[in-house]
């Protein structure tokens, strides 16, 4: 029995807990991508750098708060600064929408054109972030680091394996849960949320029934900016903030959104966790795990690793390509597209 428990704890420590946190971050980012796709009908390549911008705004205020000795220990100060980051990012997104995207809606440009426009926006965000905060690695987490460390866990449980649970991981999962619940409430219960869904399902019909399209678009940007900032700040808290890594997040986020079916919020969440779990689970070496389950002489000698970690980042792309080929509308996608 101990063997089984140890194996389970081992897997939790290295696969389940980290993947849950990473998956939550991806899921929130993918939600933003998918919402923009559902309403504005294009794939937003600026998403990664929007997240970087939001995280940057949050960090700047966090530093100010830390300087003033404002703290909500044991929780990280960044949580206090998060609303400020969200407001900054909302302002930025609304400005960019007004100056850039609105024109293309008026002329009814093709989605491909909008996608290329978003590449231009990505360039600009990319350099703005570096102008303001620089390209370096920034570390802004404070407060209690762990909910429970591996060592404490071992002491309390008496098992030979421990599971560590970081505050930031706990926060990430908790906040992701709240955000998702709030978003679904919003989409299903409020008037504007319902009109967004109507607009997404059938634009012409929605317009006929008197929905103000600009209002829908504004709301979408506000929600997307909020999601992006939360995802970006949580990612920065959990790992560390460096502008370059946010650009690299773009493809996993797209993969998550597409795997779940672009335009489908539930799918985005499922996609985020699918990508995170498969990246970690496929490259994990199962030797120790199996050694706990299988008695002595049968235990495997090799690493029992399906794929070398060299190819870890290819995993999300492979899943992406497979899903596109086998089920282009995604796991939860609607039939027509």
């Amino acid at each position: 029995m101990d063997g089984f428990l140890n194996a389970l704890i081992l897997l939790s420590n290295f696969v389940i807990v980290p993947s849950m946190a990473y998956g939550s971050q991806l899921a929130i980012g993918a939600l933003a991508v998918t919402l923009i796709y559902a309403i504005l009908r294009f794939s937003d390549f600026a998403q990664g750098d929007t997240m970087a911008f939001g995280a940057m705004a949050t960090i700047l205020l966090t530093w100010v708060l830390q300087y003033w000795d404002v703290s909500i220990s044991p929780l990280p100060t960044a949580l206090l600064a998060l609303p400020f980051g969200v407001l900054c990012t909302i302002a930025l997104c609304l400005l960019i929408d007004r100056w850039v995207y609105r024109f293309y809606r008026r002329v009814k440009a093709r989605p491909e054109v909008l996608m290329i426009v978003s590449v231009g926006v990505m360039f600009i965000y990319n350099s703005v972030v570096r102008f303001i905060i620089g390209p370096g690695d920034r570390w802004f987490v404070d407060g209690e680091r762990f909910i429970i460390t591996a060592r404490e866990f071992k002491r309390l449980s008496g098992l030979s394996e421990g599971v560590a649970f970081k505050t930031t991981q706990g926060l990430t999962i908790l906040i992701a849960f709240i955000v998702v619940a709030a978003l679904f409430c919003f989409l299903n219960r409020t008037r504007i949320g319902k009109s967004m869904r109507a607009y997404s399902d059938n634009e012409d019909l929605a317009l006929l029934s008197g929905i103000d399209p600009e209002r829908v678009v504004r709301t979408t940007w506000i929600i997307a900016a909020t999601l992006a900032t939360i995802a970006g700040a949580l990612y920065g808290l959990d790992k560390s903030f460096k502008p370059f890594t946010y650009f690299n997040l773009l493809l996993p986020i797209f993969a998550a959104a597409i795997v779940g079916g672009l335009g489908n919020p539930l799918g985005a969440i499922a996609g985020g966790f699918t990508i995170a779990f498969s990246e970690v689970a496929l490259t994990y070496a199962y030797r120790k795990f199996l050694a706990y389950l299988i008695p002595g002489e049968w235990a495997p000698q090799g690493l029992v690793q399906l794929l070398s970690t060299d190819y870890k980042f290819a995993v999300s792309f492979v899943i992406l390509v497979l899903v596109l080929l086998l089920r282009p509308t995604g796991i939860f996608g609607r039939k027509a597209s």
Partner: peptide, 23 residues
């Protein structure tokens, strides 16, 4: 394998496949 896809899916798929080639 990929050309049947819609425009933006094709964009993301080709980007993904190329990253695999580079890997």
């Amino acid at each position: 394998i990929a050309l049947g896809l819609r425009a933006d899916y094709l964009a993301i798929a080709t980007l993904g496949i190329s990253e695999i080639i580079i890997a």
